[in-house]
């Protein structure tokens, strides 16, 4: 643990945060809940000389439903998500995923935006956010832009955020769909990093299925989506659809599971998600 060389900046407002990033962005890391960064600090993986702590930027902590969108301010924690009617009504599976993040203590600190910016392919919130076709809002002292999530994330811990920018919001369309489901395989019932995960959403305009931990980023199962759009979800199409989902996955072998097992598990999770949507089952 060597961080006595790191300077900590604690802005009290968004403007101040953006000013700090304008001045120090190139050598800064942003910390919000700190549940990822504190591990990186312990493992000496933080090479930057400045940490900008946005935890006091209170104006970024909100959940709004407006203009057909659900908007999560960057300081929104997973516990906030779990307490939100808007998220429950419009994206139940995002809450199923939020419930899978760490422990209660972690969920009280960790933010959805932080999960997005850490950009781990195993991040629990990402498959539902990909299926929701979410986007992120980036602000700098010079202006604001919006980027689709699947374009924002480039790979593990890599995003299109510029050094002087702050992700201020994660938002997604308030879809009125026919059901959605998230299932994750961890090696224990909670507090486990995802071996693989699947999010399935039957939106009004079609199916969207996303998978976690099967490649450098979350992957959409386009063939399976198209197949379900064409054939509908029935007892007869369940099996073929879940096989198509697994076919889109290119998992690796690591300490948590072999590629072969991951492939089988993806098919199983897809099957189980679709089964529950088909039969209107709640999560177990």
């Amino acid at each position: 643990m060597k961080y006595s060389h790191i300077k900590l900046l604690s802005p009290g407002s968004l403007d101040e945060a953006l000013a700090f990033l304008h001045d120090h962005g190139a050598e800064a890391r942003i910390i919000s809940g700190g549940t990822d960064l504190s591990v990186y600090l312990k493992d000496d993986l933080v090479k930057e000389s400045v940490i900008v702590d946005i935890s006091k930027v209170k104006e970024l902590r909100y959940i709004q439903e407006a203009d057909g969108m659900v908007k999560l301010g960057a300081r929104t924690t997973f516990s906030d998500c779990l307490g939100s009617h808007a998220v429950w009504r419009k994206a139940t599976f995002l809450n199923e995923a939020a419930r899978e993040v760490g422990s209660t203590q972690i969920r009280n600190l960790a933010t959805v935006a932080g999960n997005v910016c850490n950009a781990s392919p195993a991040a629990d919130s990402l498959p539902p956010l990909y299926a929701l076709e979410a986007s992120v809002t980036l602000r700098s002292s010079l202006g604001e832009r919006e980027v689709r999530l699947d374009e924002f994330i480039l790979g593990p811990r890599k995003t299109r955020r510029s050094a002087d920018e702050l992700v201020t919001e994660v938002k997604f369309p308030a879809v009125d769909g026919h059901g959605n489901r998230f299932r994750k395989l961890g090696l224990r019932a909670s507090q486990a990093i995802s071996v693989v995960s699947v999010a399935a959403l039957s939106a009004v305009d079609g199916w969207r299925i996303a998978m976690g931990a099967v490649g450098p980023t979350v992957v959409r199962a386009a063939d399976a989506e198209e197949y379900l759009d064409r054939n509908g979800l029935t007892q007869a199409s369940l099996k073929a659809a879940s096989e198509l989902v697994a076919r889109a996955a290119k998992p690796i072998t690591d300490v948590r599971g072999t590629a072969e097992y991951r492939k089988r598990a993806i098919e199983a999770l897809a099957y189980q998600c679709l089964y529950d949507i088909l039969y209107g089952q709640e999560g177990t």
Binding site: S103, L187, R188, A189, S190, Q191, A192, V255
Partner: peptide, 10 residues
């Protein structure tokens, strides 16, 4: 993180 022991949920 790598050596898993049962949690309350297990």
């Amino acid at each position: 993180t790598t050596y898993l022991v049962p949690c309350p949920t297990d």
